[in-house]
């Protein structure tokens, strides 16, 4: 029996009067790969970004590797945790963004070495060695000393993954990691993600790549209008959905694929 890596409990999120996430409960086990799908505006990205509290929510709690992140319980109530603790907890959670967000003023290897040196006080030699190892892992050792601006989208995203991994996170979050890429570059990023999944990393992914979701996910979560309407193994969600709305959504995405 594997242990729980992420526990989301009764999460509630509002944008003003708009109820964006409604009482979300979700567990992710260690080494599990969870893919969140759903129509646009259903709250997928918001839920993912709540996990490291980049998106603030108003109620509920999230526990990662046994510790609260973002909000904590005080006298039976969910309250925001102190900033310092939050920053320390975020080191356990790597995040990859749709728009890469590499640091434009640093070279590729500096992008990767920076956080371990600044936040984990690693010395330069160790940080460099680890960064080089990560660059090999994502297949870009030759790009160590170039500026991010000279990379293609797919390369940028692989570097972004390496940068997140440099902090040795327990969990990796992927927010539509291939949505900003030209079609021919999607594969190289998905390949890196697949290898990462194989290595036992706990991953939560928001994506529109349904075939990829089908092949990589241990569990698929379907979100609609801020609620989880169904979750289960990919075979269930894609081939035998229990929920009518899941069925409609899955049908729609796959029909679209055929038409394209």
């Amino acid at each position: 029996m594997s242990r729980k890596m992420i526990e989301i409990h009764d999460l509630e999120k509002f944008y003003g009067a708009h109820h964006v996430l409604k009482k979300i409960n979700l567990d992710v086990e260690e080494g599990e790969v969870v893919v969140i799908i759903g129509p646009s505006g259903s709250g997928k990205s918001t839920l993912l970004r709540s996990i490291n509290y980049l998106e603030e929510y108003q109620d509920g709690t999230i526990i990662i590797d046994g510790e609260y992140i973002g909000r904590t319980m005080k006298n039976g109530k969910s309250v925001p945790m102190e900033e310092k603790k939050l920053n320390a907890m975020r080191q356990k959670v790597g995040m990859v963004f749709q728009s890469f967000n590499l640091f434009g003023h640093k070279t590729v290897i500096q992008n990767i070495m920076m956080a371990p040196m600044d936040l984990k006080k690693e010395n330069r030699a160790d940080a460099r060695e680890e960064a080089e190892e990560l660059l090999r892992k994502v297949g870009l050792p030759q790009k160590a000393n170039v500026m991010p601006s000279s990379l293609s989208g797919g390369q940028k995203q692989r570097i972004a993954i390496a940068r997140a991994l440099a902090m040795k996170p327990k969990v990796m979050l992927f927010d539509e990691p291939t949505s900003a890429l030209d079609p021919e570059m999607v594969g190289e990023v998905l390949k890196v993600m697949k290898e990462l999944a194989k290595s036992g990393m706990t991953m939560v992914i928001v994506t529109h790549e349904m075939n990829f979701a089908k092949s990589i996910a241990d569990k698929v979560v379907v979100l609609e209008e801020g609620s989880i309407i169904e979750q289960g193994p990919p075979e269930q969600i894609f081939d035998h959905p229990q929920n009518e709305r899941t069925k409609a959504f899955v049908n729609m995405v796959f029909t679209k694929d055929v038409v394209e």
Binding site: Q91, F100, L102, A115
Partner: peptide
């Protein structure tokens, strides 16, 4: 400066 830069920094564990 794109706000993604701030988010990327914060997600790594840097303070504001």
């Amino acid at each position: 400066i794109d706000k993604g830069q701030m988010e990327a920094g914060r997600s790594l564990g840097y303070s504001q």
